[in-house]
Computed example of a mutant assay.
Amino acid sequence: MEKIYVDHNASSPCSSKHYKEVFTILEKIDGNPSSTHYYGRQAKSGLEKSRFYLADYLQVDTKQVFFTSGATESNNIVVQSLCSHNQEVQNVLLSKTEHPSISVPLKKLEKQQKLKLLYFPVDSRGLYKKEELLDLVQKYSSCIRAVFLLYVNNETGVVNDVKFLTDCIKRINSSIHVHVDAVQALAKCELSWLRDSLLDSASFSSHKIGGFKGVGALYLKNPDAEKYVFLQGGSQELGHRAGTENLPGIISFGLKLKDLKQEGLWSQKTLEVKQYIVERICGLPPLVIHGDQGLTSCNTISFHIKGRDVQELLLRFELAGVAVSSGSACSSGLVEPSQVLIAMGFNEEEAGSSIRISLSPTNTIEEAEKIVNLIQQLCSV
């Protein structure tokens, strides 16, 4: 049975071509980038070439981007740096739809009375309510430490206008730190605006765009070793993050960014496949698509089928050879309903039974046709 992989928001698999390309490079430069001999210098050169590819893609300076073990670490660096050493309790703004790698450490710090969380709402489409957010910023502007924004929601694909919001927040108070989780935006949304924006930081991940797992990146507009709390004990990553770098992962990430710069956003290929699926399932009576599809990313479809158990649906997809997720892969082991969907107004039963299809340029119309046929069968039972 031919298998179909449509869980690219969880992880987009590497191609055989990419594996070969990475290991061909590593055979020549597999030294420690911190060593001063020939092999170390070659490894360092490969690492810095990947840093160039990242900075070039974002159109920022190479001194503003740092490699990490993944977006979770990147997000935690910002949270811990900004919020764990405050002399007085300050406010931090976020929505109930943020990724757990941001919301969980923030909630822990709130329990330790190091900050106070203020939540701004989303509407029924999953979009931030801009007026309510900016009203909160205006009201508490003198005592807000940071605002955390999610560019593209990992569960629903909803795209927020984070550039506009960043500009508005900074006009109210330029000292407020604005961080954007841009993990799901990479390869799907425009990011060149970072260069001229007032955004303070942003996080990225390699394996969401077909690179190796275990490597991510952090963009900092104004890097400061005294301010940002990275790993300590070495001079790696421009003196900011100690520890021998994950050279295979960084080489992989750099090559994928180089390809992305040349080939363009995924939307050129994935949108056609997504629209094919959406147009054929949106009218099925028991099926509810989450969010306005005109406001979601080019590759993500989130839905539930009324009255159907999500575990049963996942099993049916699995038996048909189709790999999908229930909500976010980071929390798929939990039975709890999606907090993202609850924030959008769905009840707990609906929020606990969502299915997510997430595409990449490797998916085809032929695969989409098989997925549609399966969903139609599931809706008719």
Rank of each mutant, 00 (worst) to 15 (best):
S354R: 13
N153L: 05
I251E: 07
P100M: 10
D161I: 07
Q87R: 14
A225C: 07
I176V: 03
N347M: 01
N75V: 04
D292Y: 08
L287F: 07
G214L: 12
V158D: 03
G243M: 06
K208V: 09
I250P: 08
L247A: 08
H177S: 12
H177Q: 03
V183I: 15
Y119E: 06
L287G: 08
S338F: 13
S15Q: 00
D61R: 14
G327Q: 05
L247W: 08
Q64K: 13
D292W: 02
L247M: 08
G264F: 06
Q90L: 05
A323F: 10
F253V: 02
L334V: 01
L47H: 12
I375N: 01
V79H: 10
P121W: 08
T24W: 09
C168N: 13
Y140P: 03
F67W: 07
K20D: 07
N347S: 09
N153H: 10
D56T: 15
L334N: 10
L314M: 15
C83Y: 05
Q113K: 09
I102Y: 13
H179R: 04
L186W: 08
L218G: 07
Y19I: 05
K129Y: 12
S175N: 14
I102N: 11
V381W: 06
I342R: 15
I102P: 12
E272C: 06
I301N: 03
H290N: 12
E369T: 11
E73P: 02
F212K: 05
E272N: 06
N347Q: 06
I305P: 00
V340T: 11
N222L: 13
S69V: 04
L94A: 11
I305D: 01
V310E: 11
L134K: 02
D123Y: 02
D196G: 04
S235R: 00
P13L: 06
I4C: 02
K256F: 04
K256P: 03
S338L: 14
V60E: 13
E350W: 04
G157Y: 02
I77G: 03
Y57T: 11
L150K: 14
Q184F: 05
R41L: 13
E131D: 14
G40Q: 10
V22W: 00
E73F: 07
A10C: 08
K269T: 01
D167A: 09
K3F: 05
R145G: 00
